[in-house]
Design a protein around this nucleic acid. Structure first.
Lengths: 234, 234
DNA sequence: AATTTTTACTGAACACGTTCAAAAAAAGTT
DNA sequence: AACTTTTTTTGAACGTGTTCAGTAAAAATT
C-alpha cells in the first residue's frame, strides 16, 4: 500500500498515460462545471475509460483534488519564482506572489470552494494537517521560505524563522476570502491583498521593535507549538 | 417558502412533536456514531418515521447540523451567562466562556468536524457567511458583545466596537483546533485556551496604547469591511 | 516458449442523500 | 355533517460515490 493506501502507484508507461488522461479529463470538467456537477462517471466517460478504472488510479474524488492542488501549485511556483529575482523587498514580493496565486487559481474559482470544504475535516485526506497532504503543504510553505530568506529587511531571528509559516497561513486566509468573493474580476480580493500586505508590512516592523521582544517571544512560541503539532498527529 | 426554501415551518402540534422526535434521534445517533456513519435512513428508523418524512422537516442532512448548532449554542449560553455575573475582568470571562464552550461541545467531538467541513463551502447553507446561518451566527456573536460590554478594562472605543466579532473569530479558531485535538481529555485545547487568552489580554493592552492608534485604526477599518461583506453577499 | 505473477481494466452491485407523486390524516370551511 | 384545503406521511425511484469479484493484458520468471 501507498502512504495511506488510497492512490495506487503506477507501474507501467501505459498506466501513466491513462492516469494523466483521467486527470486531464477531470480538470477540464471541473473547470467547466464545478465540483458537484462533475461526476466520476462523466470523468471516466470523457477519458474513454471505465468507472472502475478511474478508481484504480484515484482512490476517491477527493484525491483528484489533491492532484489538482499539486498541479496549480506548480503553475504558481513557475510564475512566482522569477518575481523573487526582480523584487527584493518583502512587501513587493508578497504583493506579487499573492496576486499571482489568485490569477493562477482563477479558472477554477467555481469549484475551489470544495478545497476548503474538506480542508477543515479531520477525517479527510485533504485537510492541510493530514499526513496525506504533507508533501504539497511543505512545497507550498517552501515558497514563502524563499520569499523571506534573502530579503534585506531588519527582522529578528525568531520572527524570521516563523514568518514563512505565518505567511502561508495568511495566504490561506486570502484564498478563503477569494472563494467567497463574487465581485467583478475579483476586485475585492485584489483590494484586500493590497491592504493587508501594506498592514502586514507595518506589523512586521512593529513586531521587530526591541520593546516588543517579550510579547513577540510568547506569541512565536505558541505559533511554533501549533505548527509542530500537525506533524505529530495520526 | 422559508428563508431559503429548505426547512418547512411546522403548522401542527403533532408536526412539532415529530420534528423534535427526528432531531433527538439524529443527535443521539450523531453522538454515538459520528456524521458519516449516521444515515438519514437510520435516523428515520430510530424515530419510527419514514425516510421521506424526515426530509419533510429537515431539508437536508446539513440542516440537522444547523439545528444541532442552534441547540448546543443554547446550552453554552445557559452555562456562560452566569459567569458574566461573577467575573468582571475580560481575561477571566474569556477563559471561562471558552472552556465552557469546549465542554458543551465535547459529547459531539466525533462528528463536529463536519461543522467546519461545510462551514468553508460557499455553496453550503451552513457556511458562517451564508444567509441561512445568519441568526445563529448573530446569537453567537452576541455572547461576546455581552462579554465585552460591561467590562471595566481601558479599551479604546474603536477596538471595543470590533472586539466581539474578533473574539468570535478567535473562538472559531479554538474550535477548529479542538476538532483536530486527539489528546487525552482534550488537554491540548485547554492549554491552548489558557495561553492564547493570556496573550490576547496582553495584545489588547498593547493595541490600546495611544502610540498604536494609527496602526490600530487601519487594522480595524479592514476588519469592519470584512465583517460587513458577509451580509452583503447573495 | 510456457507458465506464473503482476498490473490494467471492466461492469455490476451496494448504500447513500435526495426527490416526488400520491395517500392518509388533520384542520378549516360551509 | 359534508366538503375542501392544508399538513403530514409514505415508499418507490433516481443518480451519486465507492467497492469488488473477476477478466484481459502485459511483464516477469522458469
Amino acid at each position: 500500500m501507498n502512504s495511506a493506501g488510497k492512490t495506487k502507484s503506477t507501474r507501467t508507461a501505459k498506466g501513466e498515460q491513462t492516469k494523466a488522461l483521467i486527470l486531464n479529463s477531470a480538470l477540464d470538467l471541473l473547470r467547466e462545471r464545478g465540483y458537484e456537477e462533475t461526476t466520476m462517471r462523466a470523468i471516466a466517460r470523457k477519458a474513454g475509460v471505465s468507472l472502475g478504472n478511474a478508481y484504480h488510479y484515484f482512490g476517491s474524488k477527493e484525491h483528484l483534488i489533491q492532484a489538482f492542488y499539486h498541479r496549480t501549485h506548480g503553475e504558481h511556483l513557475a510564475a512566482a519564482l522569477p518575481v523573487l529575482q526582480k523584487e527584493t523587498s518583502l512587501k513587493a514580493r508578497l504583493l506579487s506572489v499573492l496576486r499571482l496565486k489568485i490569477s493562477t487559481l482563477e479558472p477554477y474559482h467555481e469549484f475551489a470552494g470544495v478545497l476548503f470544504k474538506t480542508a477543515a475535516d479531520p477525517h479527510s485526506p485533504l485537510n492541510p494537517f493530514a499526513h496525506d497532504s504533507a508533501p504539497t503543504r511543505h512545497d507550498s510553505i517552501k515558497l514563502f521560505e524563499d520569499l523571506v530568506a534573502d530579503t534585506k529587511a531588519r527582522i529578528p531571528g525568531d520572527l524570521r524563522a516563523e514568518l514563512p509559516y505565518l505567511l502561508w497561513l495568511y495566504h490561506m486566509g486570502i484564498i478563503l476570502f477569494w472563494i467567497h468573493d463574487s465581485s467583478p474580476k475579483r476586485a475585492r480580493t485584489y483590494r484586500l491583498i493590497d491592504q493587508t500586505v501594506d498592514l502586514l508590512d507595518k506589523l512586521i516592523s512593529l513586531a521587530s521593535n526591541p520593546l516588543m521582544r517579550p510579547v513577540r517571544k510568547r506569541a512565536l512560541k505558541l505559533v511554533s507549538e501549533l505548527r509542530d503539532m500537525g506533524l505529530a498527529e495520526a
